[in-house]
Amino acid sequence: MRILVIEDEQKIINFIKKGLEAEYYTVDYAMNGEEGFFKALNEGYDLILLDIMLPKMNGFELTKKIREKDIKTPILMLTARDTIEDKVKGLDAGADDYLPKPFSFDELLARTRALLRRTGSEKSNLISIADLEIDTASHEVKRDDRRIELTSREYALLEYLARNKNIVLSRTKIAQHVWGYDFDTSTNIVDVYIRYLRKKIDEDSDKKLIKTIRGTGYKIGE
């Protein structure tokens, strides 16, 4: 899951990045409104964390412009401005949630999960595909009640696939959302990690969940 943080205070970016990466998210950031808009427009993100008082373009304007471009990425506003008027203005501009500073990091993570859930079909932190279960809060993965240990990158890849279950995802898209960069499509990093994941998840079961769609990419499903 790839998250864009738009915030002009470097130190705030630092701890948010550190904290989110520890939870297997991929974090990218922008330090002013224009840069943030450009990134949101040109790269795929699963969530945008947005400050309001930003140089060049404020958070309200940015949200409006992003929505005008028909980008539906959930936006969570993070700001020191916490009057009712500000909240209403932010939500009306097209933001999905609002978290006043200073905030508890646990709350930020919970709201992040809630917003990511909203785009998928899941209504809880638990995603299940056949006998595979993924707890997106504790990052526990089980297959047929057997715990599977994954590295952070493997987990991130699995969660991304699972949140988009039954949808075919291209290598480029996977690389973007899981690794956070626009890889050259000639790289085989995605294929390598898919192989690792298959070994841990599908090898011991008769039912193979991760499927290769020739010429397009991968999907997970029954």
Binding site: E9, K11, I12, F15, I16, K18, G19, A22, M53, A80, R81, K101, P102, F103, S104, F105, D106
Partner: peptide
């Protein structure tokens, strides 16, 4: 409130992140 909240956010964020991560 804005000026005081920024350092508060950073201080709290740093501590929260350090405490909740087992690694």
């Amino acid at each position: 409130s804005h000026e005081l909240k920024t350092p508060l956010t950073i201080a709290r964020g740093e501590i929260d992140v350090a405490l909740r991560n087992q690694k």
